[in-house]
Design a protein around this nucleic acid. Structure first.
Lengths: 111, 111
DNA sequence: GAATTGAATTAGCAGATGCTAATGAATTAG
DNA sequence: CTAATTCATTAGCATCTGCTAATTCAATTC
């Protein structure tokens, strides 16, 4: 079965399924803003590869960019995760169990 | 960067990233139990393909099986989604918004 | 017992994927 | 102005993936 225009869930899952690409997202997420060069350092892959991963993440709506001079700074766009959350809402029944342990968390947010 | 033993998050995401395979999981989830033949019907792919997808899902811990006679019945194992949930717990900050609407749900569970 | 059905496995293939190396465009530094 | 830095893009590649078709084994059915 082929999806003409791929489902958002598919897009996001595919973007995050690759460990290298997911690691890029995580680093972008943890830094408020981070340049491509900085992302490349210690990534184990070339700058070109990083740019390609960033392109995928951007198309999935998971990161956004801001150009400044010759640098391009990326930041996470966690709203991009919404398709995943919605999907899990529906198919992750076992959440119910989690909700039982959630009282503490709620207190933390609104004591 | 190559992962020797792939991360559970990677395993689950990869299993669910493919639309056909995810559709299989969803159908298994919605039926309490379902045979391979039944899954094959209306899936658009051959029985062999379905078996391969089920194998992936099983290795990811997302489904379990029960053999009876010459049939094999599959059921969802939503605990297999835990790696995903844990990951999102960490990287899906925007959950905070959702938590605000959660009070009602909690009351429903423990009035 | 022979034919049928359900399911797993395999070989083989077309297409997708992730990577590198190289190139090019743009900005900054000397 | 020239050299160096940052980033995106491309071609080419080795590998992975999802599929079909075919085979095999097991369990019903006739």
């Amino acid at each position: 079965m082929i999806e003409a225009t791929p489902n958002p869930v598919t897009t996001v899952m595919r973007a995050l399924a690759d460990p290298t690409r997911r690691a890029v997202f995580e680093r972008v997420f943890e830094s408020k803003e981070i340049s491509v060069a900085e992302l490349t350092r210690g990534s184990g892959v070339t700058q070109g590869a990083i740019s390609q991963h960033l392109k995928s993440l951007k198309q999935a709506g998971l990161v956004a960019e801001r150009a400044e001079g010759r640098n391009v700074y990326y930041r996470a766009a966690p709203q991009g995760l919404e398709p995943l959350v919605t999907w899990m809402d529906h198919y992750g029944l076992f959440w119910r169990e989690r909700f039982q342990n959630l009282r503490d968390l709620l207190k933390e947010i609104d004591p």
